[in-house]
Structures are given as C-alpha cells and as structure tokens.
Computed example of a mutant assay.
Amino acid sequence: MRLRPPTNPVDPRALRWWRLRALCSAGLVTAVLGVTTWLWEPGRPWLAVPLVAAALWTVARVTFEPRIRYAVHRWETTDQGIYGLSGWVVREWRAAPLSRVQTVDAVRGPLEQALGLATLRVTTASSSGAVNIVGLDKDLAAELAERLTVITEQIPGDAT
C-alpha cells in the first residue's frame, strides 16, 4: 500500500458545519469581548485591540477556513486500505492498511446530526491514533463503516 492522494471530496454540507463550529468558538470569544467592552467603560481603551483581533480572527475562521478545508479534505477507501487528507493549517496525509484496523465507527456530534453529516473514525494499531474522515453524509459514513467492518473481519489476525 503506497501513500497517495485520496480522490473523494467531503460532502458540501461540511462547509456549513465548519462555519458553525468557527462561530461557536471564535465567535463566542468575540461576542464576550464585545459585550465586555460595551458594558465596562473603563476597560474600553485596552479591550479595543483584543476585540478587533478577535473579530478579524472570527471573520477569517468563518470565511476562509471552511473553503480551505473543503479544498484540502479528501478521503478514499479501497479493499486494501483507507486514505485521508485533512487540515487547513497543518495538513495530515494518512494511509492505513485494513489489516491494521481495530475499530470502525461512524460518529455524529450535535452539529453534524443537525446537518446530516458524520465522521468516519477508523482506529488502527498505530501510535498516531485514528484516521478520521470528517464531513461525510451520515448514510455514506454508516455504509462505509459497515463495508470496512466486513472487509476487516475477513482479514486473519488481530490487527496488532
């Protein structure tokens, strides 16, 4: 199995998921700083700079991050392995042979559930951790989890 670029993009709804996550994290910090600046008059002079920085960071996270992630994130499964390419600042390119797979899970957080998305988590006998393929359609993730489970059950050994 050679390391190669995976071919499949994530679901387009992942763009909304990434935007909502950015709003929940960076947007919350901006909102707290904004309310604090508005309510606490003596702190306005020194809160202005962090507020502007947080607002710019929030705009970048909501506007640019999802587009970059969508352009970068790719995945592919074959009968021999699973391939994943992810990241927007630090890019991670992973390939895992199915002979090393220990568990296959379809994970859905609250925002993913609301958008009909899921994350395929493939745990291997590796110190690098699981291969996560985020932003998949929930039905596709369930189908892939089932298919990969069937394939790995047919491989002899205990994946260690």
Rank of each mutant, 00 (worst) to 15 (best):
W46I: 07
T149N: 09
D105S: 09
Q154S: 13
L28F: 11
T124H: 01
S99F: 00
P9N: 05
V90K: 09
T160E: 12
V131Q: 15
A31W: 04
V101F: 00
W93N: 04
A114D: 00
A130D: 07
T124I: 03
I151R: 15
A106D: 05
G27M: 06
V131T: 14
E76M: 09
W17N: 08
D139H: 04
V90N: 10
G109T: 15
G109A: 07
R67T: 04
G116T: 10
T7G: 12
E65Y: 14
G43V: 14
A14C: 10
W38S: 09
V10E: 01
G116P: 03
A130M: 05
R13L: 10
R108W: 01
T30S: 14
I82W: 12
T119S: 14
T119D: 14
Y70G: 13
V101A: 06
S126K: 00
V10C: 04
V29I: 12
V104S: 08
T103C: 08
E146F: 11
V101Y: 02
Q154V: 05
L3A: 10
R61V: 15
V10A: 14
S128G: 14
S99I: 00
T124S: 11
V10H: 00
E153R: 15
W17Q: 11
P5C: 01
S127G: 02
E153H: 13
A125K: 04
L140C: 08
R19D: 06
P50Y: 03
G34F: 11
A60Q: 08
Q80L: 03
E76D: 10
C24N: 00
A31L: 15
W38I: 09
T37D: 00
Q154L: 10
A159G: 00
V89A: 11
G116F: 12
W40C: 08
W88E: 10
G81P: 03
R2F: 02
L28C: 02
R74Y: 13
R91V: 03
A14K: 01
S99A: 13
T149A: 10
I155D: 05
L111A: 07
R16E: 08
L47V: 06
M1H: 12
W18K: 03
W17T: 07
M1D: 08
Q102G: 10
V150Q: 13
V89P: 08
P6Y: 11
D79W: 03
R21F: 13
I155V: 11
V90D: 10
Y83A: 07
L15G: 05
R121M: 08
W57P: 01
